[in-house]
Amino acid sequence: MTALFQVDRLKKSFGGLDVTRDVSLSLQKGDRVALIGPNGAGKTTFVNLVTGHLRPNSGKVLMDGEDISTFNPMLRVRAGLVRSFQVTRLFADMTPEQHVALAILQREGKSGRVAGTFQAMPDVMRETYAILETLNLVGLARTPVSEIAYGQQRLLEIALAMALRPKVLLLDEPAAGVPHSDTFLIENALAQLPDDLAVLMIEHDMDLVFRFARRVIVLAAGEIIFDGSPREVTEDARVREAYLGSYGHASSAA
């Protein structure tokens, strides 16, 4: 059975520095995978390679068995590979309603229309409000994004990803910048994602990782050093060493 999404021996170096070394992984429908690793492990580089914002030195990215390595970022989105951003990227003057509607229009190939408004398209309005309601954003539907709280902007990032109906979703630190007390909002939003969607989440908040992920991949110094269940990851010696250095041994000895 071919994997829904597959990364095959991806390599990238900047000058003499290898930031991604032979990274291979695959996702199936419905996967909930967390990608973790210490600072500088190459997580963001990995996302940029997969989404086409950086060109790898070698290696392939496949969707449904089709090689999308030569696709630009836009074509990869159209193939069903959608990402969210670590730092929120939204349109400051526009409302959540307009954001979600624009994403839906784009997905449906209607964003080139030069007449009519999305408010006059019942299907688009219905879906927009359904998504906003799932994420509890209906009350803010008509408030410009520059006036809403950062935590809610993070939710809107997830709303946009949902509106694009991806097959594979890469979440780049969805809880970054959100106060710890509000993380549950993000968590609830993630729980609303469709069951057959494959999700790869990069995250530092370990509580969130352990509650969300059914599989954990650990990246350190550009290499995958662990790929397994969340239960095993805490016991893995290499992971401990990557995170804690020699202290890892000390604490296990103690």
Binding site: P73, V77, F85, R89, M94, L102, T117
Partner: peptide, 24 residues
């Protein structure tokens, strides 16, 4: 105020986000 106009306003504010929506 058409969908196309909305897309253009989006591009003015953040072209990277627009291309991450799959628009050219």
């Amino acid at each position: 105020r058409s969908p196309f106009g909305l897309l253009c306003r989006g591009i003015r504010q953040d072209p990277v986000r627009v291309s991450a929506m799959g628009a050219s």
